[in-house]
Nucleic acid binder design. Structure first.
Lengths: 191, 191
DNA sequence: ATATGAAGTTGAACTTGTTCAACTATTTTG
DNA sequence: CAAAATAGTTGAACAAGTTCAACTTCATAT
């Protein structure tokens, strides 16, 4: 029953009747993305929003110097979105790639907007989700400014052990904003 | 007419009847905050959300080493919030200080939540505002990772000239995540 | 099972940014 | 207006993080 996790996730944010919850979830469909496959590549429009059921995704951009910059990782119980592309129908700056064979529940743009119309509580849900995410991004930026790379690394593996265990050091480095060589050196230092 | 700017700001995000717009704006009241005064200090709960009409605010935290870290500046037409404190009634990590004599429209928590109940469109409004802010924070983090301090400095003064002109270099430095001494050196280098 | 490629390690030289201290310029306050 | 506080500048020594290159280890595909 792949919808169970999605339902729980929604209920963490809002109070909602079982009926409405079912109606909402019916708009999502299961998609399997195999390891290394892309759900989205930079330059195209992402007309979906996703909720990860299983596996792991990396959301990253490639800048003009060809450097990869990881925004975040999404494992079970995380959402996958490109708000800018979805909202404004603009070509995405992001790549979303599966790091393992993964399962994701996707909702397309048309259905999402009809949910907003039919169920005002969906506005509340995404209002709350976005505000929580915003707080997390603000905190991450502060950590980037106030902590050294070493501190950020240990913060990451301590707070996201289930993510850290799935991904390579190279990818952790690109999330932390440092080179993988330097991460390698950090790990050798006395803690 | 201090509500004019707020109304325009709201209308940039949603379509709304003049009636509803008036009803919503009536929940805000004008407050004057003089230069150097705090609208919020770290440790207390911020039971308001604000919209700046005039002047300039700095939103910052002080970390355990005593270093100031500026999240952002808010001038005319910007919002002032501490989502975490407001949502969860938790002591704030943030300070909000006026850098000039300023005017701000404030809505208190009770009124805000009754607006959410009475006018579902307010959920939409803040959903959209939060999502736009989220995109901006993601982009800022990417810039922090992919650009040097010098590039970030010139990005800032180019993209926020109206803010840059109001604030000291010390404060710009704390926004960029560098020391003010280094900013001073950056400005001397050939562009 | 082996070859290929990607991920991880290490070192040396380098660049970016910090720290501290001394000084100058600008604001603020009485 | 004068005094005091705050903001900005500069230099020298230092620390944090990068680059490049060579090497090792691990994973993947055939």
């Amino acid at each position: 029953m792949p919808y169970q996790l999605l339902k729980q996730n929604i209920q963490k944010n809002i109070q909602i009747s079982t009926n409405e919850l079912d109606e909402i979830c019916n708009n999502f469909e299961l998609k399997i993305i195999n390891k290394k496959e892309f759900l989205l590549t930079q330059g195209s429009i992402f007309n979906y929003e996703g909720f990860v059921i299983e596996g792991c995704f990396r959301i990253f951009t490639i800048d003009k110097n060809g450097n990869e910059n990881t925004l975040y990782f999404a494992v079970k119980d995380w959402w996958l979105m490109d708000i800018d592309s979805f909202m404004n129908q603009s070509p995405s700056d992001l790549n979303i790639q599966a790091l393992e064979n993964s399962k994701v529940l996707l909702i397309n743009r048309t259905n999402k907007y009809s949910l907003y119309k039919l169920y005002p509580i969906v506005e509340k849900l995404f209002r709350i989700m976005s505000q929580k995410a915003l707080v997390a991004w603000q905190r991450r930026l502060i950590r980037n400014h106030s902590q050294t790379a070493k501190e950020r690394y240990f913060y990451f593996i301590k707070n996201y052990p289930n993510i850290a265990s799935k991904i390579s050091n190279k990818q952790i480095a690109s999330y932390l904003g440092i080179t993988h060589e330097f991460l390698s050196k950090i790990k050798k230092l006395p803690k």
